[in-house]
Structure formats: structure tokens, C-alpha cells
Design a protein around this nucleic acid. Structure first.
Lengths: 214, 214
DNA sequence: AAAGGTATCATACGCAGGTATGGGAAAGGT
DNA sequence: ACCTTTCCCATACCTGCGTATGATACCTTT
């Protein structure tokens, strides 16, 4: 198994025994298990760079697992969460699921249920990471454009002709053509259709329409 | 208030009293309430043509509300569901929420909670209907294209030049140009960028790539 | 001061896209 | 039999796009 196939589970629970039991369960299933006794310990450690998920108790010493879930969402940390609890009720479940939890397991739970939930969560993360890395490559290419090139790109993918872009930016048409050519090359777009799809994913068009009132 | 602003709640419950109580609650909030004593009665009546939602008991005579939720999903009936129950547990809640339920209310619930859930569900439906009607206009325009025009559109929005499209379809370039012009006119696309976005929404490109192995 | 990146523009050439005009052929419905 | 639709193609013309060549100017970094 290569590193790229590594699958990892982060467990946050304030009970030593629970942490130990879950860790050995996951390890016996071929997963890497990382255990933390508090949310802050987890945050300080940083996220592992592989398909991973978080197993979280709803009630932690002094902190709510549900609040921590919200905190992760605010910080745009999109790790899938499997929630577990000894004293759960339906409103808690609704809140957790609405916030995007993969599963919500009342204790005591069967080890197969936990394992199934975790595998499901890891698979979700794997898919998310795949699309996120595509999006990242796109974003970094876009970041390498000059400000002018970004402006031209926005107007071009909105459907304006070169001369119209030139008018809006007070440029000559030939200058627009040059910027446009640079954009195609730097973004590695094979065609205008390609560039339009990239722009759509980046939200470039929405931004352009807003800025120029199209 | 015009018809377009009408908001409607469908209640399915086998208990007369519950139906009556919920109906009067919703009506007092300015909503149209339709009550049904079984899922089949609801299906026979057909969906109201306005922003609406479904309030459903998990346990119905002989039928499961959760199974009915799955049935609606299978039939692509995308009405938002507020689930309620007298004997709910966490796994049921997880299943309902995972299947897209807006809320899951254990009985007895506060009337404000129910009303809030229903308003939220109706707002969800309103947004869904708005995007669905856009998509419908697009679909009907696409349906008015001839088979050839659809093929040409697929290849054009994939990024192929006219001569490449001509090669693939064993046509002359001029014929492709004519079809392409017809596509732009019939789809009311103002630019190629426009057409690419329409095609993306319609899933035309995925289909084309699959068919021609691009 | 030199170098490099960014931005601007002109001219010119070739290719791509779009439309108009005109014509031919096959399929399907009235 | 006739009409409509769909599909096909040719010639011609105009517009739009892309790039090469060459030039000027500004700013920042070295």
C-alpha cells in the first residue's frame, strides 16, 4: 500500500478507554488511527494529508462536539465527521446531520456500525479531496494571471467580443487579443469552451457580472 | 396575495385529530393545508403547483414514512419533507436526514417548532422550483433541436472546431456552420460562452464525451 | 543602471466563424 | 400528390480571432 492510499481516522474523546478501543478497532481494519483528548489538541496537531475522517463525541469535557462541528465549518475545515454519543436525543441528531455529519451513533454501538460509518466517511473525503485538488490547480493557474488578464478573462467568458472588452476597459482591440492569448496559454485552456468551464468553476463570471453590471 | 405567492403544506397522518390540529395551525399562519390519511391518498391527489412541503409521520398504518420518503426519491418527487414521530430513535433520524428531510420532530413538539420547520421547508421548495423552472425552459429549447443539431451542439461545446466536428460527423464544414447557427438561434444563446453554460447545465457535454470517446 | 515583468498599441497575415443565396434529396404527414 | 421538415452542400462575402513583428512606457527587482 502506498502513502496515497493511506486512510486515517482522527478520534476525539476525553475517555482514555474509548480512545484506546476505537484506535485498536480502526487499526485492525488497516486504518491509521490518531487519537486526541480534546478538540484543541486535534486542531494543534493539524490535519493529516490523506483521506481521513473525524470521530467525535458529542459531549466532551467543557465543550460540545456539535459546537466544534460548527467551528470546523466556519474555518472551512471540511473533514467528514462521525458523531457518537452516550446521551443523544433527536434534536442533537438533526443538528449534527444538518451540519453535514456522515453518521450519528448512539452508545453503545456495534463495532461494525462504527467501522462502516468511518469507511463511508473516508470515502466521502477521498472524493472531496479529488475534486478539491482539481479546483486547486485551477485556482493556482488563475492566481498566476496578471490583474489585467483576469479582467479580460472575466469579460471574455461572459460572452463579450474582443472589441466590446476593449471598449469597457478603454483598450485597443489588439491589446485585448494579446491578453486573451496569454490567458488561454497560462490557464492551459484548449478552447474557449474550456475556458468558460474553468471560469464557471472559479466563479469568475459571477464576479465580473457584478463588477460591470452586465 | 397572488397565486404565485401561495404556500402549501401537505399533511399525511392516519390520526384524524392530528390532521385537524396541524391543518388549523398551518391555516392560521396563512398557509394552505391539504390533509391525507395515507401516502397513497397523497399520491393520487397529485402535487399542488406551488411552493409546498410535506409533513409526514414516520409510523403510518401498515406503512413506514421512511420507506415512503425513499419512494418519493425514486420517483424524483423532490418535495421537502418534515418528519414527525411519536416513537423515534436516533437511527431513524439519521436515515431521514440522510435522505434529505428538512427536519425531524419528536412528539410532542411545540407548534412554533413545527411551524418553523414547515416555513423552512417551503422556502427550500421555493428556491428549488425557481431553479427547476429555469432548467425546464432550457430543456424544452434543447428538445426543439433536431437530432443533428444536438450532435453538433455537443461537439461544439466540447471545444471542437467546425472542421473537426465536420470530420467526426462526415459532413462538410459549411453544413456544420449552418447547424451551429440554428443551434445558437433556437437555444437563444447570445454567445458561445452562453451556449457552453447551457450545455453544462443540460449535461450535454458529458453525454457527448461518452459517446465519442473524447 | 540593467533586467524583467506588465501594459500598451500598430500593422499585417492567415485562419475560423457566421450568414446569405441558391440548390438538391429523402422522409413523413395531410 | 403535395407540403414540410430535415439534412446536405457550394460559392461568396464579411467579420472575428490569433499570432508574429516591432515598438514605447512604467515599475520593480537586482
Amino acid at each position: 500500500m502506498t502513502d496515497a492510499d493511506e486512510r486515517c481516522v482522527c478520534v476525539i474523546d476525553d475517555d482514555d478507554e474509548v480512545r484506546g478501543a476505537l484506535a485498536s478497532l480502526f487499526r485492525s481494519a488497516g486504518l491509521t488511527a490518531l487519537v486526541y483528548e480534546s478538540p484543541s489538541a486535534f486542531l494543534e496537531a493539524g490535519l493529516p494529508d490523506c483521506a481521513c475522517c473525524l470521530v467525535l463525541d458529542v459531549r466532551l469535557r467543557g465543550e460540545s462536539g456539535l459546537d466544534f462541528q460548527d467551528l470546523l465549518a466556519e474555518r472551512a475545515i471540511a473533514i467528514p465527521i462521525v458523531m457518537m454519543t452516550g446521551h443523544g436525543d433527536i434534536p442533537m441528531t438533526v443538528r449534527a446531520m444538518r451540519a453535514g455529519a456522515i453518521d450519528f451513533l448512539p452508545k453503545p454501538f456495534g463495532t461494525e456500525d462504527m467501522l462502516a460509518a468511518v469507511l463511508r466517511a473516508i470515502e466521502t473525503d477521498r472524493a472531496r479531496r479529488a475534486t478539491a485538488s482539481d479546483s486547486d490547480r485551477l485556482r493556482s493557474a488563475f492566481a498566476r494571471l496578471t490583474p489585467r488578464e483576469r479582467e479580460v478573462m472575466g469579460l471574455v467568458v461572459t460572452g463579450l467580443m474582443n472589441k466590446q472588452v476593449a471598449g469597457r476597459l478603454n483598450l485597443s482591440e489588439i491589446t485585448v487579443k494579446i491578453h486573451r492569448g496569454n490567458v488561454m496559454r497560462k490557464m492551459e485552456a484548449q478552447s474557449l469552451a474550456d475556458l468558460v468551464r474553468m471560469a464557471e468553476q472559479l466563479g469568475v463570471r459571477d464576479e465580473t457580472i457584478h463588477r460591470y453590471g452586465l
